[in-house]
């Protein structure tokens, strides 16, 4: 049994990296716009279909689709914030919640209407190529997913901490009036953030599809874990989302190992409750009010 633990943990890390990437998008949107984006899972679903159709129709390898899907979804996220979420919510946070929820319902049902509820998968030649990682053999796509997701997290960190727009994003997140008064376009910065968050989900979709599937409901499973990740890490915390995403991936894998594959996700929610019991603000959350 113990010989299986380390391989399971390594496998869990690869899943956790995807959780982290999806959660990073969500936590960025929460941290800056102070809204909970219920459409996050549906956007992941749309991106999965996007990669799927690029593969089926145009023969694109899922990884080579990243440079197409990610910018496309950045623009989609930007446009959604500017064209739908901001105008329809009229600046009231409770309205934003309803607008993003409405968007997710619309997207899910459009997907159901156009693409049916059939489960679709992408068959890539390297899906079962195994890579030896220490004591474990891990499918190549999962290894790629891990490193690509970590690379994305690093790029995102650099953008937020080292660039002009990143500085503006951090300024708007905490002091909107001050940001306006130095000439930062607040609405535009919000839209850029929403775009970046959506692009994270798009990259996650490209990394996910070689070992996963797509249906119109696929977003739910992920968004639930992503919300858990964000809350566990501390709402709006970058490092928190990263660490708790990886952690939840490992916990899920270990629970799968001991309780059986189908019960793996129980571990996620048990860990969630236990950790919040002792750290109500999350792993990296500031203890305020």
């Amino acid at each position: 049994m113990s010989a299986l633990i380390l391989p399971a943990m390594l496998g869990g890390l690869t899943t956790g990296a995807i959780y982290a990437l999806v959660a990073l998008g969500l936590t960025l949107i929460y941290g800056v716009l102070h809204i909970i984006n219920f459409a996050h899972g549906s956007l992941l679903m749309l991106a999965l279909y996007g990669v799927y159709f690029l593969h089926v129709w145009l023969g694109f390898d899922p990884y080579l689709a990243i440079p197409i899907i990610a910018p496309l979804f950045f623009v989609l996220g930007y446009a959604l914030q500017r064209g739908v979420i901001a105008p329809f919510s009229g600046g009231k946070e409770q309205n934003v919640l309803l607008v993003t929820l409405a968007l997710s319902i619309v997207f899910d049902n459009l997907a159901l209407y156009f693409w049916t509820s059939n489960t679709r998968t992408v068959a890539v030649s390297y899906a079962y190529t195994m890579v030896e990682v220490g004591p474990a053999f891990i499918p190549l796509p999962k290894v790629i997913a891990f490193f690509a997701a970590m690379l994305c997290a690093a790029i995102l960190w650099l953008v937020i901490n080292r660039t002009r727009i990143g500085k503006a994003i951090r300024a708007v997140a905490i002091e909107k009036r001050g940001a306006q008064l130095v000439g930062i376009e607040v609405e535009q910065t919000y839209a850029v953030c929403f775009g970046i968050g959506t692009a994270c989900v798009a990259v996650a979709a490209c990394l996910l599809i070689p070992t996963f599937y797509v249906t119109p409901q696929v977003g739910y499973a992920f968004v639930l874990v992503a919300f858990t990740t964000v809350v566990l890490g501390g709402m709006g915390s970058f490092a928190g989302a990263l660490v708790s995403g990886l952690l939840l991936g490992v916990i899920e894998a270990l629970c799968g190992l001991f309780l059986g594959e189908t019960l793996g996700q129980i571990g996620i929610f048990v860990a969630f409750i236990l950790i919040l019991l002792f750290r109500p603000a999350g792993l990296f959350g500031q203890r305020t009010a």
Binding site: K167, R170, A171, A173, I174, E175, R177, G178, V182, I184
Partner: peptide, 14 residues
Amino acid sequence: RIFPNLTVRENLEL
């Protein structure tokens, strides 16, 4: 209305 989460240098740069 300064940016409390940014450094003094970053505040000035903004």
